[in-house]
Computed example of a mutant assay.
Amino acid sequence: MALPQPAPLTAPEVAQPRLRHAPLSPFARKVVVVAHELGVLDRIEIVPCDVWAPDTDIAGDNPLGKVPALRTAAGAIIGATLICEWLGTLAPEHPLLPQEPAARWAALRAHAVADGIMEAAVTYTMERMRRPQDKIWEGWLERQEGKICRGLAHLAALPAEERANIDLYTLTLGCTLGYLDFRLPHLDWRADHPQLASFEATISERPSLQATAPVRFI
């Protein structure tokens, strides 16, 4: 059974949605990439945010203090995947997932793994960059690396046709692999997974990913 689709919002509710965004966040990048692919990027206002700044106001848009967060007239929407679902209501002619039930569930299952790899990579990065050096927990870093490596192996073993579409899964995977290159280059995932390397070489050429590549903001 397919997941229920959110009802399209009325025009007043989507007049000027505001996206709280940090250019080095892969989750924020995922949202902007999806907006770009759906052709609705010009319908949202992107507001940069440093969630680590002492005077950050991100809690006004997300009580969890994270980006991305989308503020609409109907209220705040938090979490990259949920925001992408909302963006999809602005362009229903471009579905974010396959419509055939079996293909849809295959994409959703793979997306959950790609999203989980992204989460583990961010967790690794925060431990490495934000914790005092003498308090970094190497065992915690190894645990995150294990999640990443197992997740990549799982996705690499899936049929190649599941990576053929431009959808929520493949766009998320493209952002995830880009973040691994940016923050965890020591993993050298291409050597272990040439299937994913070939996929990344193709999807990274899309304008949406080119325009949001994290190295462009350094």
Rank of each mutant, 00 (worst) to 15 (best):
residue 158 L to Q: 03
residue 136 I to A: 11
residue 143 R to V: 13
residue 188 D to C: 07
residue 181 D to N: 12
residue 193 H to C: 02
residue 191 A to I: 14
residue 150 R to S: 11
residue 136 I to E: 09
residue 209 L to G: 01
residue 192 D to K: 13
residue 169 Y to I: 08
residue 163 R to A: 05
residue 181 D to E: 13
residue 165 N to V: 12
residue 158 L to T: 04
residue 188 D to L: 07
residue 195 Q to M: 10
residue 175 C to H: 03
residue 159 P to V: 06
residue 182 F to E: 07
residue 159 P to T: 05
residue 177 L to T: 05
residue 168 L to P: 12
residue 208 S to L: 02
residue 156 A to K: 01
residue 173 L to W: 08
residue 198 S to G: 10
residue 152 L to W: 06
residue 156 A to H: 03
residue 209 L to S: 04
residue 187 L to R: 04
residue 197 A to I: 01
residue 179 Y to Q: 04
residue 190 R to Y: 07
residue 168 L to Q: 14
residue 148 I to Y: 11
residue 153 A to S: 05
residue 148 I to A: 10
residue 193 H to D: 04
residue 144 Q to C: 14
residue 199 F to L: 03
residue 140 W to F: 09
residue 159 P to S: 06
residue 201 A to C: 07
residue 196 L to R: 00
residue 148 I to D: 09
residue 178 G to I: 08
residue 189 W to T: 03
residue 137 W to R: 13
residue 198 S to D: 10
residue 140 W to L: 06
residue 138 E to H: 15
residue 183 R to P: 06
residue 164 A to Q: 10
residue 210 Q to T: 09
residue 140 W to D: 04
residue 168 L to H: 13
residue 175 C to Y: 00
residue 198 S to E: 08
residue 176 T to K: 02
residue 161 E to F: 10
residue 150 R to H: 12
residue 167 D to Q: 12
residue 141 L to G: 13
residue 140 W to E: 07
residue 156 A to N: 02
residue 165 N to A: 15
residue 201 A to F: 05
residue 142 E to K: 15
residue 149 C to T: 15
residue 207 P to Q: 08
residue 182 F to I: 05
residue 164 A to N: 09
residue 158 L to F: 00
residue 146 G to M: 13
residue 160 A to G: 04
residue 141 L to W: 10
residue 144 Q to Y: 12
residue 197 A to N: 01
residue 154 H to L: 04
residue 202 T to Q: 13
residue 192 D to Q: 13
residue 179 Y to S: 01
residue 161 E to D: 14
residue 189 W to N: 01
residue 157 A to V: 00
residue 177 L to Q: 03
residue 145 E to Y: 15
residue 163 R to V: 02
residue 150 R to T: 12
residue 157 A to H: 05
residue 201 A to R: 03
residue 192 D to V: 12
residue 157 A to L: 02
residue 194 P to S: 03
residue 141 L to R: 14
residue 159 P to Q: 06
residue 171 L to F: 10
residue 203 I to H: 07
residue 199 F to G: 01
residue 194 P to L: 01
residue 166 I to A: 13
residue 200 E to H: 15
residue 170 T to K: 09
residue 140 W to G: 05
residue 156 A to Y: 05
residue 139 G to M: 08
residue 149 C to M: 15
residue 208 S to K: 00
residue 151 G to A: 06
residue 157 A to W: 00
residue 184 L to G: 05
residue 200 E to C: 11
residue 209 L to R: 04
residue 191 A to Q: 14
residue 155 L to K: 00
residue 207 P to L: 05
residue 169 Y to Q: 07
residue 178 G to K: 04
residue 195 Q to V: 15
residue 152 L to I: 04
residue 138 E to D: 15
residue 169 Y to P: 08
residue 161 E to T: 11
residue 209 L to H: 06
residue 173 L to Q: 10
residue 159 P to H: 04
residue 203 I to A: 07
residue 143 R to F: 14
residue 195 Q to L: 10
residue 190 R to W: 06
residue 188 D to E: 09
residue 183 R to N: 02
residue 137 W to M: 14
residue 162 E to L: 07
residue 183 R to C: 08
residue 158 L to C: 02
residue 148 I to L: 10
residue 164 A to M: 06
residue 179 Y to C: 01
residue 179 Y to P: 01
residue 186 H to G: 03
residue 175 C to N: 03
residue 199 F to S: 02
residue 172 T to R: 06
residue 193 H to I: 08
residue 200 E to R: 14
residue 169 Y to W: 11
residue 204 S to W: 00
residue 189 W to Y: 03
residue 170 T to Q: 10
residue 167 D to F: 13
residue 138 E to Y: 15
residue 154 H to C: 05
residue 176 T to P: 04
residue 163 R to G: 03
residue 180 L to S: 08
residue 179 Y to N: 03
